[in-house]
Write a protein that binds this DNA or RNA. Structure first.
Length: 288
DNA sequence: GGACAGGGTTACG
DNA sequence: CGTAACCCTGTC
């Protein structure tokens, strides 16, 4: 594989990004991380063993990464995908002294980025996510990709891209139920794919809408409620002020803030802190 | 191997 | 506005 070296100055932790629960098809094999989006595949690994993860004082210079793509593809596809135009280090540094939970959470989640993912993939993935845990979501989304996605090849390794709306719109609901194990979500997925394929949902035009209207627009899809719509806004359209409230975040609000909303004060970065809090809550569970 | 919860949403009362 | 039902998978 032809590779080149790129440098990243800001927070950037591949493992945490994979685990952060926004993307369900990223993977790690033999030290290489694989990401997929919009017909592109990226293999990336830290150049030095520790990478940024092992930099406790945050004063180190840029971290080096080996990547499979050329410079143009990095700039056009992957830098926006990883939201590299945003300074997460400054955002973390601005947490007030009084918010100890968020100081711990953002420190623990340092390196996470809010990915700018494909809107169709994000919509389908988060419809599937309801009442599932992360391993189960990965399984279901992977099944869709392996059955209906176009294959791409890098050397002798192949991967399946996320399927096109037109393809998913023509799959019988029965097949979603029985072969893809989607259960009651089967009609939701079919409906969403059909609305996108037929242009009733315009994923391009949606990007022009303000946050509230964008969320309402996606709730027109059956099976998309406020939580999933907010996930789409945050993870596909970069609306970092939007906070999806799931059971984990709900628990944090109840147990750490007496039922109050700890995110509101962070305004346009509230969604980023939501992601730190989500990661931290999951991480704590793992350590119990 | 059974119980329980899991990145919710819809359709009822 | 609260609540049951929805289908299936991980995890203890």
């Amino acid at each position: 594989m032809n590779t080149r070296i790129i440098y990243i100055e800001d927070d950037f932790d591949l493992k945490k990004i994979c685990e952060s629960g926004q993307c369900f098809r990223a993977s790690e094999e033999g030290g290489w991380f694989r990401f997929l989006t919009r017909g592109h595949i990226l293999w990336i690994r830290p150049r030095d063993d520790a990478g940024r993860c092992g930099d406790p004082d945050e004063t180190g210079g840029p971290a080096a990464f080996e990547v499979s793509c050329d410079g143009a593809e990095w700039d056009e596809i992957w830098a926006p995908y990883f939201d590299l135009g945003r300074d997460y280090r400054s955002i973390r540094a601005a947490v007030p002294e009084d918010d100890m939970f968020m100081r711990r959470a953002s420190s623990c989640g340092r390196g996470i980025r809010i990915l700018r993912q494909d809107p169709f993939e994000t919509t389908i993935s988060f419809i599937i996510s309801q009442r599932k845990n992360i391993p189960a979501i990965r399984q279901a989304v992977g099944l869709l990709a392996s059955r209906y996605g176009r294959k791409v090849r890098t050397g002798d390794v192949t991967a399946e891209l996320f399927p096109e709306p037109e393809v998913l719109a023509r799959v019988p609901e029965k097949e979603y139920r029985e072969a893809c194990r989607l259960g009651y979500r089967a009609p939701y997925v079919l409906c969403a794919a059909q609305m996108v394929a037929q242009g009733q949902i315009d994923l391009e035009a949606a990007s022009e809408l303000p946050d509230g209207e964008l969320i309402a627009y996606f709730q027109r899809i059956r099976g998309v409620g406020v939580k999933v719509a907010r996930c789409i806004a945050l993870f596909a359209y970069g609306r970092t002020g939007v906070v999806p409230v799931d059971t984990w975040i709900g628990r944090v609000m109840k147990e750490q803030y007496g039922g109050g909303d700890p995110f509101r004060r962070y305004r346009e970065n509230a969604g980023i802190f939501q992601q730190y809090a989500f990661y931290y809550a999951q991480h704590e569970r793992g350590l119990r």
